[in-house]
Amino acid sequence: MNLALILISVLILGSAAVALALRNLIHSALLFVGCWAGIAAFYLWAGAEFVAFAQVLIYVGAVSMVVLFAVLLTRQSDAAEPMNPDSFSRFMRALVAGGGVAGILVGAILGTPMDVSTAGPAPTLTVKEIGGQLMGPHAAALLIVGLLLTVALLGAVVIAAVDRPEKSEDAS
């Protein structure tokens, strides 16, 4: 039981760390997809089937596509940027900050006694129950999320669209 969890954790953390360290943006984007798929596997392990499939559908299917298109649309020269001392010192500072946060969090988790029943079977939440919850007590939140998504996507299209046709005439 715990072995599966540890394997999934190694997959998630390994792919995330390597993705953030790579120079090739496409490779790191694809590794991020692997990381998201690992998180979906974690949700499956925890028994949250619906969330796992939603994660795959949205992250692996949609967000990854947006990221890959963005990488291709903003491609710079193929030569990788050199590792200058400025970015190195920033990396060290980031590592110190991240390590500090990690130390505090791990210490807090290991130091806290958790009296939860771990022996119980995984809880099951059917799709029907989730739907009932969404349409009942959380209907307002559902409406707001729908509105948010519509506005966000319209805004994204407006921002990313070519907005100044007269400039292209100048260029040509």
Binding site: N2, L5, S9, A16, V106
Partner: peptide
């Protein structure tokens, strides 16, 4: 297992932060 899950999530958070 709960502690393992929390460790996973905090380490992932820190990887993202770095």
């Amino acid at each position: 297992p709960l502690q393992l899950c929390l460790l996973l999530s905090s380490l992932l958070f820190c990887v993202g932060l770095v």
